[in-house]
Simulated assay, not measured.
Amino acid sequence: MTHPIGPIDPELLRRLQDDVLDSYDEELEMEIDDRLLEGDSVVDDESREARRLYFRELFRLQGELVKLQDWVVHTGERIVVLFEGRDAAGKGGAIKRITQRLNPRVCRVAALPAPNDREKTQWYFQRYVAHLPAAGEIVLFDRSWYNRAGVERVMGFCSDEEYEEFFRSVPEFEKMLARSGIRLFKYWFSITDEEQNARFIARINDPLKQWKLSPMDLESRRRWEAYTRAKETMLERTHIPEAPWWVVQGVDKKRARLNLIHHLLSQMAYHEVEHTPVYLPPRERHEDYIRRPVPDTMFVPEVY
């Protein structure tokens, strides 16, 4: 194989190929993990072909996300994406696929815990404002200020007055974000009653996933109908032209991820940014340099 700077050593080529495969294996590891979670132990020819198409599209879309990232940095855009939905709806999996090949200094995730005593006395949106992007940044909110319209309402963590004030304030808050130049995208992951039940049971029986089920999650399962009413009210009262809601059909996780990424990309007229060609400079070598040996006791044991 040749390169603009000359032929590539076969050993170097092998290393480059191994690096690419290792990168793709990261995604494969997550997909295998999902299969185990779902109890899928048999892969027929149809499923195998569907998985092949899924990987092909995912890698293509992730390549477009890299282009979007470069465009955001180049233009100084500020992007905010909200991920909302029921527990086990697939928000986290979608976020992982978006961020997997992006620069964490450009695209970061904000997953805020429950407010502490001090934060409870602040303006409701205050702790979220601190995580909004500067120029050239993308912020993905894994749950957001819409906690007040969902879990806080259903679990009784806010008063009726606070609930109504949220609905008065949130359209104005989001209009302010839009006027400031922030692009805001809001996605709701929708799954069926039966699908959430199956995913909860799978997590209960998977020791590697049990940490995902908090007492609050289990209680949310019991209050399915209350969450449905809260979601319907939220969508009705906060679906505004400046920041509309988009519903992602989430029963099929793979389709949901692809559809969301494709839709997000379609909302922005990004383009590929030209970069100055990068050339690896030759390493300097000095005759007086002698590499010092590392004591054997400092090495991690090579168990594998």
Rank of each mutant, 00 (worst) to 15 (best):
V273Q: 04
G39F: 14
T233E: 15
L36P: 00
R292M: 10
K209W: 03
S159M: 03
L37S: 14
E274T: 12
H3S: 13
H239R: 06
E174H: 13
V73M: 03
A50R: 15
R60D: 09
V139R: 09
N116D: 15
R52L: 14
P171Q: 12
P244F: 11
L280K: 14
R52D: 10
V251C: 08
E165H: 15
L264N: 06
R15W: 06
F167M: 07
D117F: 03
E172L: 15
P4K: 11
V139G: 04
A88F: 05
R179Y: 03
G150K: 03
A198E: 12
K254A: 10
V170Y: 03
K212H: 03
K175W: 04
R143F: 02
R203Y: 06
L58G: 03
V273W: 05
R179S: 08
Y279P: 00
I182S: 02
L12M: 11
L37V: 12
D18K: 15
D70Y: 03
R143H: 02
I8E: 06
V273A: 04
E27F: 14
L177V: 05
D142A: 07
Q267C: 12
R291W: 07
R153P: 01
M30L: 12
R292F: 04
R105Y: 05
M155P: 00
E272P: 00
R168S: 11
Y279D: 05
T75H: 08
D252R: 15
T121C: 00
D288V: 14
Q69N: 04
E164C: 11
F173H: 10
K209D: 00
L132G: 05
L177Q: 10
Q62W: 11
L37F: 11
P277Y: 12
E57P: 01
M155A: 15
R179I: 01
E64N: 09
L68Q: 05
P113W: 10
L53V: 12
P171M: 13
G63N: 11
L36R: 15
R105S: 05
E194D: 14
Y163L: 15
T297P: 00
E174L: 13
P293N: 13
V247N: 03
